[in-house]
Design a protein around this nucleic acid. Structure first.
Lengths: 236, 236
DNA sequence: CCGGCGTTGTCACAGCGGTGTCATGTAAGC
DNA sequence: GCTTACATGACACCGCTGTGACAACGCCGG
């Protein structure tokens, strides 16, 4: 385990019951994570804007909004759409739990759980979401994506993209020369297991191509018939 | 959700206790997965070579080898290194379980678990590992097939192939120097239980040869009269 | 509180490319 | 030479993808 990448990550725990919160905090801090806490959705929003956590651990049942609604909200906001979410559910909420994965969270744990299981899942999610951290700037042949300012430019000209197209392009530029199915793209760009038509990907591909076309960069977005799409600076 | 991509996936359950095996089988089959079973490491090896499962569900404690050792072994073998593994552990095996995710498995479930949790995790893992299948790169004498980008190139020149020709070539390059009947090829390239004329294979062989001909690589696709075809870099 | 504005997901339709089958030409084996 | 198996070109069908339009939704600014 690479301590450098994994440690000192900030985790926001959204949980209304203090004992559970403490138990979670204890386990995570022993694993050398930084823990922030929030009791409800509103203070969670503030904490997200303030702390910019690397991962959110959220109870399924919150006072007021349901965890599901809240995750959907987080996914919409560009500030939080890239932050992975792990859901905490009780065994009783069986039916809901399965739906949980269709909400947009990255994983979930079932109460009662152990500290080590929690830490393991947190690490696993961080491991697969962290590489390609969102802040870095990527450039290919003059097409530049600046993660810090969330801006895209072609040479000197700015490229106007919607939030989804931006995330799509960032995903592509972080993983070039590789074919992804529509389903994989929904998972990695929209969020794990969101319920959206696969053909929606086509539409956003179209929008991304349209935005890149004036600069000729639409040639980077390549269709692989029967499989999906690929980002590549070489000819298709 | 596209039934075609998710359904009909083969899952190998490696578990020595029959009741648990049955419970798992029941849940997975209700979710329309194909289930194969193995009681120990040795029969698991055979099943992997034979069935080529899309995912392996493995108990942490197996008679003889530990699950961890076995996963390591699977990861070394090129035949199985790409197959995702979900580990099944008991709550008691706390310490080991944490190591589990560092062993090379893709996820794990803790006993006791519900069918719906299991199915949800299986689906989640398949969804994120299910690219065009094999992502390995194969090369023979300058003819290169890159699984990740699904591209074929002869030296520096790209080779244009349709999806079926691509799969056909990948099958050939994965199994060189061996004759396959048309029926075998239909099973392995087209998929089991497809009803297609055997002569169709000839046509796709023709198309593959045509695409490879400009580079002289059509000589690799060799006819074995009365038996089928063979891929070989040596003279026919 | 209301009404533009931008973004998003879905649909319908069109075009193209891929696929399977057939008919015919050609080579191999006896 | 005759039979059989394979090679090849043509063709019709169909599924996949590209594309424009549209409705729903949240976000301001008024």
């Amino acid at each position: 385990m690479t301590k450098l990448t994994m440690q000192h990550k900030h985790i926001l725990v959204v949980e209304d019951e203090a004992p559970i919160r403490d138990m979670i905090r204890f386990g995570l801090e022993r694993a050398e994570f930084h823990v922030h806490e929030a009791e409800d959705a509103q203070s969670a929003r503030l904490a997200i804007a303030d702390q910019r956590p690397d991962l959110i651990l959220m109870d399924w049942m919150l006072p007021g909004v349901s965890g599901a609604e809240f995750v959907r909200e987080l996914r919409r906001e560009s500030l939080s759409s890239a932050i992975p979410v792990i859901m905490v559910t009780a065994r009783v909420e069986e039916d809901d739990r399965v739906r949980g994965l269709n909400i947009g969270c990255d994983d979930y744990v079932v109460k009662p759980f152990s500290s080590s299981e929690l830490v393991a899942r947190v690490r696993a999610v961080l491991r697969r979401t962290l590489p390609g951290g969102e802040a870095e700037t990527l450039e290919v042949d003059g097409l530049r994506l600046d993660g810090a300012s969330q801006r895209v430019s072609a040479g000197d000209d700015p490229v106007r993209l919607g939030p989804t197209e931006y995330r799509l392009l960032r995903f592509f530029m972080s993983n070039p020369e590789r074919v992804y199915s529509r389903e994989q793209m929904l998972d990695r760009v929209w969020g794990q297991n969101v319920f959206v038509e696969e053909r929606t990907v086509d539409v956003h591909i179209r929008r991304l191509r349209k935005a890149l076309a004036p600069f000729g960069f639409d040639r980077f977005i390549q269709t692989v018939r029967g499989s999906g799409y690929r980002f590549s600076s070489r000819a298709g």
